[in-house]
Design a protein around this nucleic acid. Structure first.
Lengths: 240, 240
DNA sequence: TAAATACATATTGTATACAATAGCCGATTC
DNA sequence: GAATCGGCTATTGTATACAATATGTATTTA
């Protein structure tokens, strides 16, 4: 394995962003990071530029790099565009995946399953991310891949959040998602685009419900009396 | 107007790519460009990195920057994904365009019309590109914009090619396209997403037919006799 | 003559020193 | 006491010198 310091910096920062070690909005210190990775500022800046190009960071002139934020507007367009892109990627992937890509996908999936089994949150997040990234390379579309990439970044970060928020509930969902991955692999391997799309949309729905629950949780009780009975209140209907 | 040398370099190189001054596959010389724009290599490299991030160039380590190529595979995914993305962008744009964005769009359109009128190819290409770019900013989708950007780059380059290839035929099409722009502006201004999508797809079809004709032209005559009558041959059916 | 190797040259990558800009803090003024 | 101005410091941006890599050429050898 011969990874240059630059690639290492790139990968490390990516992972820190995805696992919220660097939370949205955080500012990055060039000189600090440069020292940290044993690089001078010049190549480190190139790393930051690339990460900005991929949607992990955003750069503002004379004001350095910050982790891409997830505000209300981005959330909105996230829910608008994710299913469309995911479905398109799934179809293309099932159409034209190569066997070596399939191997990589299976490997990511087994690493994911293992992480789930041992309840290693960071690994789960990273390998799930990788799984879907590979899906993107299978699709081999210069045009859709960048969109997928950005969607995945925010999807991963949100997943991380809602897992941290309610571990027990999330765990069963994640195991379900993990099984869906296996089915998706099968659909791709058998070259069944329609089924791959279908599974992908199911996968999305599962995730979407969870995210929506996190974004719009049960309202807080609005007076003292309600507050006392808060634990008893029946869970309200869920928008589907 | 206070544009830094860097922004100027960025913009100039973009335009050179779009107008095929820098054809697909061309290699760029860092030191030369740096001198040309009165910059040192460090900031110029940052420009190149950004252009690579946006899909104009592609960088290979130790081998410099080359203009993004347009091979068969990319063409394939281009035709696959363009209508989907264009339609999605149109819908979002009609939903949420701001008035200042609309002003910018109208300005780009009038510049485009003027360029068409005076038959200034480069200006046409640039302002048409800008028109659709603004459409993208209207959609305000972090996730779809990068896809749109890449599609537009290649769309613009192809348009340039087929215009150069057959000016007279293209000219009437371009005037039609120009009128469609006006209608699109109207649809956006009136907040009619469905109509905006519809117009966009028509716009796409117009362009698509032209591109397909260029990509798959009438076959060359395959023997001497045919060759002599080549000028007389009736144009074959057009795949629709 | 063809192939291979080693050297020379051109180009890319990195480090560091220097310049410019932004943000902060204290001082001065009303 | 509030506000604005001015300089100080921290951080970003740029230039340049140096290192590493790749490519082309000439020379050697089979």
């Amino acid at each position: 394995m011969k990874t240059s310091k630059k690639e290492q910096a790139l990968e490390t920062i990516k992972q820190r962003v995805l696992t919220m070690g660097l939370p949205p909005g955080a500012t990055l210190d060039e000189t600090l990071l440069a020292d940290q990775f044993g690089l001078s500022r010049t190549p480190l800046r190139e790393v930051l530029q690339r990460l900005a190009g991929d949607g992990y960071l955003s750069l503002e002139t004379n004001r350095g790099a910050t982790v891409s934020s997830m505000d209300l507007n981005t959330m909105r367009s996230f829910f608008q565009s994710a299913p469309m892109i995911y479905a398109a990627i799934a179809r293309l992937a099932a159409d034209q995946a190569t066997t070596s890509q399939l191997d990589a996908l299976k490997k990511a999936q087994s690493a994911f399953r293992k992480a789930v089994k041992h309840d290693k949150l960071n690994d789960m997040v990273i390998y799930n991310h990788r799984f879907h990234e590979i899906t993107g390379t299978m699709a081999a579309s210069t045009y859709l891949s960048p969109s997928l990439g950005r969607l995945l970044i925010d999807h991963t970060r949100m997943s991380y959040r809602f897992y941290t928020n309610d571990q027990d509930a999330s765990r069963t969902r994640i195991m379900e998602a993990c099984d869906q991955h296996d089915e998706m692999i099968d659909a791709i391997e058998r070259r069944e685009p329609a089924r791959a799309v279908d599974l992908t949309l199911k996968h999305w729905e599962l995730s979407r419900r969870e995210m929506e629950k996190y974004v719009t949780p049960d309202p807080l009780p609005n007076d003292a009396a309600d507050f006392l009975h808060a634990g008893d209140t029946v869970r309200e209907v869920e928008t589907v």
